[in-house]
Nucleic acid binder design. Structure first.
Lengths: 202, 202
DNA sequence: TTTCGGCATTGACCTACATCAAGAAAATTT
DNA sequence: AAATTTTCTTGATGTAGGTCAATGCCGAAA
């Protein structure tokens, strides 16, 4: 995992994300940026492997990552994708200090800005606005997860697929079908059939 | 929905919940408690109906509530239970000001302490530690939801049922089976068969 | 105490989705 | 560009879980 100097561009991207929820003074921005490190990732490269203890959270500035669980039969179950502008990490491992159950890797050559847990703790202590920022971020993530649970409780796989497609039309261009299938909770074969079936209806 | 004076007991319960994550001075406690109102609920009584705008979050001090979505066919899909010591509300409606998609009601005669959105906003502004408190609360809720998504992606219904049973053994005593079925994402008939099947194995 | 309406169970049948196997088509490596 | 690997598709068949209908059960109301 290659570590490099972040450029002004990287900072601008993450600051734009932060500015959606809170506003910062120039010196707060500077301080925040000073806590970040840039990692360049090759396609298929791990950011976190199940069993490790997760010590940082990542903001994607370029490329595309995924977080997944590997079940007892060795199947990968994708819990999250992260394209440019998204945060990704193993919350549970970060919060509890326990070994991660999730694995995170890059699906394309990517770049992420990382903040280490200890810097994260410093940050929210020094600038309580960040406590608020992450609360709001988590609120959105929570709502999205609740929505996803509902989609599993109430609908069939085709409904979930169509919803994903309209909500994130660019996913299909960048993410291999078998990963989308894994995210939806179906086999690649069945997703293939659904697509076939849907296109024949038009 | 009957509104009454909260007693010291009620305050102690919610303060114990808060104390798990942050510590407060006496005056902060007092201020926090001054923002709460107590509601007594009859069994089957609504706290929130889909379509309304949710203006408060509830902490259960007695009894048992549920939050559910009613789908197009009129089926109830339970997204959350809340027993004593749990928070429950429609985050999405609270955060966005949009009409709630969830309905929340009491499954037993219950009591909840409510904090209104405007008081909530005041609270986190005046005492940033509460920003932190709710961030930590949300972190846990997020992790729990992620776990639940995983249980839908990777396991069968029986696995979900057994996990629920070991994690919350008292659910089955207090919550009707058809509600547990709804929470698990299966029909009551199928849950019945699973139980039958499991008990025959021993 | 009886009556009644919701709740749990059981059985027969049906559907959405999984599994396994084989080819075709891309994408990567050489 | 050939070779190799990975991904996507298609077909045949199996299974988890749904639907509908009937029956029995318990708890609330009268």
């Amino acid at each position: 995992m290659h570590t490099a100097q972040p450029t002004q561009q990287h900072f601008e991207r993450i600051l734009a994300n932060v500015a959606k929820y809170i506003s910062l003074t120039a010196s707060e921005k500077k301080y925040f940026c000073s806590l970040l490190t840039l990692k360049r990732l090759r396609k298929r490269q791990y950011v976190l492997q199940a069993g490790e203890i997760s010590r940082s959270d990542s903001f994607v500035t370029k490329g595309c990552l995924r977080a997944y669980y590997i079940d007892d039969d060795g199947n990968e179950r994708i819990v999250q994708f992260a394209l440019e502008g998204w945060w990704i990490g193993d919350m549970a491992s970060m919060a509890t200090g326990q070994p991660a159950k999730l694995t995170i890797d890059a699906m394309e050559d990517s770049e992420v800005l990382q903040i280490e847990k200890k810097n994260f703790d410093l940050l929210v202590e020094k600038i309580p606005k960040f406590e608020r920022f992450f609360r709001l971020l988590l609120t959105n993530a929570f709502i999205a997860h609740q929505h996803r649970i509902l989609s599993h409780l109430s609908g069939g796989a085709e409904e979930r697929y169509l919803e994903l497609r309209t909500k994130y039309p660019n996913f299909e261009k960048r993410i291999p079908l078998r990963h989308i299938a894994s995210y939806l909770g179906v086999t690649p074969e069945f997703l293939s059939r659904m697509r076939n079936h849907i296109s024949k209806r038009h």
